[in-house]
Design a protein around this nucleic acid. Structure first.
Length: 222
DNA sequence: GCCCAGGTGGGTA
DNA sequence: TACCCACATGGG
């Protein structure tokens, strides 16, 4: 079984377990970018609390752009790393204003995928994962986001070579997978990545990918 | 009190 | 290029 076939089998098994992921309510692209920066190294709940606090304190992105940095830090504190994320958010908004004259990312829609990705990753604090989330979730473009679960699991399952870097994993998985499954496969593989820690989740049903996994019957795959 | 969530950038070999 | 670490918070 080659990697493409294996990916298809994994996708089908995860579909049986977790189902098709329906598109969550769209955030507009700027909101998606800000939300994704907030999500870095944080869980979803803390990200959402921080995002709501920011929106409540500053109802428009112009206000966020022009606010004193300390007030942004204060608003987003629940997401952690506030002193890192506040300048990243404000820096992105300021660059948008300077380059586009408007606080919108809509111009990315007209750029080839590679150029759109390059523009996003040229922002401080936006790496391949954050760029791919914005492109896939906000624009529906064929970018596959690789977070730590996906990186770990896709190497363990042999979808990509074991030494593949996170950045390289984006390229390889995008070649491997048909774009129409990016969205569901991304979310289902993360769900699987969380569930595979059976030692921590005794209620978890047996792993649907056990026969594809080099760790076989072991209870705690890395 | 400790682990978990889990991205980016900067540094090193 | 691969690996290591700092960065901060809140819930279980």
């Amino acid at each position: 079984m080659n990697a493409v076939e294996k990916a298809q089998v994994i996708h089908e098994r995860l579909l049986e377990r977790y189902g098709e992921q329906t598109e969550r309510p769209h955030l507009e692209p700027v909101a998606e970018l800000v939300s994704t920066i907030l999500s870095q190294n944080t869980n979803d709940r803390n990200r959402d609390v921080a995002f709501e606090r920011l929106r409540e304190r500053f109802p428009t992105w112009e206000e966020v752009r022009d606010a004193p940095l300390e007030e942004i830090e204060e608003a987003i504190r629940p997401a952690g790393l506030a002193q890192t994320k506040a300048p990243r958010i404000q820096g992105a908004l300021r660059r948008l204003s300077e380059e586009q004259g408007l606080l919108t990312l809509d111009f990315l829609e007209d750029l080839p995928l590679g150029e759109a990705r390059d523009w996003l990753t040229s922002l401080d604090g936006v790496g391949p994962k954050t760029a791919a989330i914005v492109l896939l979730f906000a624009f529906g473009r064929p970018a596959f986001p690789v977070d730590t679960h996906i990186h770990r699991v896709s190497r363990r399952l042999g979808l990509i070579p074991s030494k593949t870097s996170r950045e390289k994993a984006h390229e390889l998985l995008e070649e491997l997978l048909p774009p129409e499954i990016y969205y569901t496969f991304h979310l289902n593989l993360i769900a699987h990545g969380r569930d595979t820690c059976q030692a921590r989740r005794p209620d978890c049903p047996p792993c649907p990918l056990l026969d594809l996994c080099p760790y076989g019957q072991e209870q705690t795959a890395p």
